[in-house]
Amino acid sequence: MTPDQVRGRLWAVVPAAGRGTRFGGEVPKQYLAVGGEPLIAHTLTALCAHPKVDGVVVVLAEADAHWPGWQAIAGKPVVTCVGGSERADSVLAGLAALPDSVRADDFVLVHDAARPNLHPADIDRLLEYGRNDPVGAILAAPLRDTLKRAGDDGGIDGTEPRERLWRAFTPQLFRRLQLSRALEAARDAGVAVTDEAMAMERQGLRPLLIEGREDNLKVTTAADLALLEFLLGSR
């Protein structure tokens, strides 16, 4: 058996049940057209094109009228399920919808639907280090800007040290059962985790930070969408 077969199958969970309220508009941002394709199409293609990814679970909003109905991309299976009101609820639903061939201790990628400019080298690096860690790992980048603390009146109250601070990206890589239990524990405690690593941290675990490309952009505003179109066009 190859090392990858010993490690088990690798699937990705893509939570896509959000409405993208910060972006605005009638169409959820993951379905906005970029380069003639829905944004989420670029995201799923980036995942499915990687040779070590076996399939993807896409977590949709209930009665999602925009989902094109894809069942496979790049020859890899695409499975859908219905998510919840919070990100953690959707990721839990996606983990539960994984096929039985994905074992409890197999690693799973969780990736934002609105991060389509994912490079295969970042996935390679995440898998190389994360699969050899007892907890897992996330893609991230160290903060490079100067940070200011604002006062109530909008003035600057001070400058914050940026050393040892990182911006968390996705994919994030954790074992199926361990992540499910961490997300359930956060939910039961009434804690709304903003990413999967936060749920793991609450369990006293320390995922690795793997530096990834700065252009692993999450589309949040119209300006982000314009930048994404440029980035994808230049690849």
Rank of each mutant, 00 (worst) to 15 (best):
A16W: 12
E26K: 13
R176C: 03
G130C: 07
V102F: 04
E184P: 03
H42V: 06
E229H: 07
A114I: 12
H50W: 06
V79L: 14
G233Q: 04
M200A: 08
L205T: 00
R162A: 12
P68Q: 00
Q172P: 05
L147S: 08
W67V: 08
R103S: 11
P68T: 07
E128C: 01
I138E: 14
L228P: 07
L47Q: 15
A113E: 15
V34S: 03
T80V: 15
A12Y: 03
W70S: 10
G83Y: 14
G94D: 01
D152H: 02
V79W: 09
A46Q: 05
L126F: 08
V58W: 06
A16N: 15
L217M: 09
A114K: 08
V135W: 06
A197M: 12
E214K: 03
G8Q: 01
L208Q: 11
D54M: 01
A168G: 00
G36R: 14
G24P: 12
I123K: 09
D152M: 11
A93C: 09
L165A: 03
R7V: 09
K29E: 12
D105R: 09
V79D: 03
T80H: 05
T146F: 07
L231C: 13
G155M: 05
V13I: 07
S90K: 06
D224Q: 12
E37Y: 06
A72T: 12
Q5D: 14
L44P: 08
P77V: 00
A17C: 09
F230I: 10
A185Y: 02
T80S: 11
D4A: 10
A141R: 15
K29I: 09
K52H: 10
D4I: 15
A185T: 03
P15W: 15
I210Y: 10
P15S: 02
G94Y: 04
Q30D: 11
P51A: 10
P120M: 06
P171A: 09
A186P: 13
R7D: 13
G20D: 01
A150Q: 12
D54L: 07
E163Q: 15
R162P: 00
V82D: 01
E184C: 04
D122I: 07
A46F: 10
F23K: 03
R144P: 01
R125M: 14
A65T: 12
E196D: 11
G233P: 00
E86G: 07
A16K: 09
A192W: 05
A96N: 06
R125V: 08
A192M: 02
L183S: 04
